[in-house]
Design a binder for these strands. Structure first.
Ligand SMILES: [Zn+2]
Ligand SMILES: [Zn+2]
Ligand SMILES: [Zn+2]
Ligand SMILES: [Zn+2]
Lengths: 164, 164
DNA sequence: CGCCGAGTGTTATGTTATAACAATGCGGCG
DNA sequence: CGCCGCATTGTTATAACATAACACTCGGCG
């Protein structure tokens, strides 16, 4: 399914790439993990652990407990298939599966969708800055909140209409 | 008090600058808020809301409830005196009180201290990257985990000693 | 078979944060 | 003074996010 928010990422192709990566790496894509994958496939926006829990319970027709969900998330996080978005307590598909990276996340406050950008300039600037401070980087998180292209445009035209 | 971790920031001067800023802005620095300020002054590392709560309860000699702490934190956050560190669920003094900024936080995984860097290169790179994506930034969070200068040095000498 | 390890189920609990409403204290003003 | 309005704080309850600890299943392997 293409995302409903008008952004250009596609969770469904992400899911198929995750399946490939599991095959290559010998990681077990169990039924439970596959269902969680499917849940992400159907969502344009990042998902919280308890949103996944509820959806999983709904689909399985029986109550699922938090550890089940968190263990599944851990599996995807450890394999680099998901990112945790700290500022939302939510989880989103990694859009650059094939290589290590520090993603920069652009999170739209209007439609809730998130986009992962990989920008060499940002990565380099952060690395330089940390080096100046004598700081040895291990993990970097860049999370930005604002308006995505589509929502910013909508907002503009809405205010134009208000003037007219 | 200078920080015990060997970093060069100083929460005590931060507290006095906050007091000045409150006077200038006409913000009420009530006894409760002053006590929370004091608690930050005594800590080199970021503090969680419940750590503040316990310390506050200890100093007041009576139980304090979460909303009291969270409201105080909200006050400091709204005035830009504190930053929330999303990846730690903790709060740290802003080291650049006098102007708006997106701080980049360097968090040491060994000693727990955090340092706030303001780097024009990073800020510009992120702004450029967001602009390329058509994204209107409102808030940017940059948090890095790793080893501070002192801890990285310690680790090096420790491994050197292990070889010898 | 008997053991092990990965995955999952289950129960309970810990940690972080907010909602909703009451009470207090203080300055302005008729 | 008596009253109002506002900011602050107190109080109770609960929501939201996350983990600990232990039991069970199942497939591989000696
Ligand atoms: Zn990614
Ligand atoms: Zn949007
Ligand atoms: Zn700051
Ligand atoms: Zn350190």
């Amino acid at each position: 399914m293409a995302s409903a928010c008008g952004c250009d990422h596609d969770p469904a192709t992400w899911a198929s790439r995750v399946k490939d990566a599991c095959l290559r790496q010998g990681a077990q894509l169990t039924p439970l993990r596959r269902r969680v994958l499917d849940i992400f496939s159907g969502s344009a926006a990042p998902l919280g652990a308890y949103a996944i829990l509820e959806e999983l319970s709904r689909r399985e027709g029986k109550q699922v407990a938090p550890p089940t969900v968190y263990r599944t998330l851990d599996f995807f996080l450890e394999h680099g298939f998901l990112h945790k978005i700290e500022s939302l307590n939510a989880y989103a598909p990694c859009e650059h599966l094939d290589h290590a990276h520090h993603g920069m996340l652009l999170i739209c406050e209007s439609c809730g969708c998130s986009e992962e950008i990989e920008d060499a300039g940002v990565t380099r600037a952060i690395a330089d800055s940390a080096a100046d401070a004598g700081f040895a980087l291990r993990r970097v998180m860049v999370e930005a909140q604002g308006l995505c292209r589509k929502c910013a445009r909508d907002r503009l035209s809405a205010s134009a209409a208000a003037v007219a």
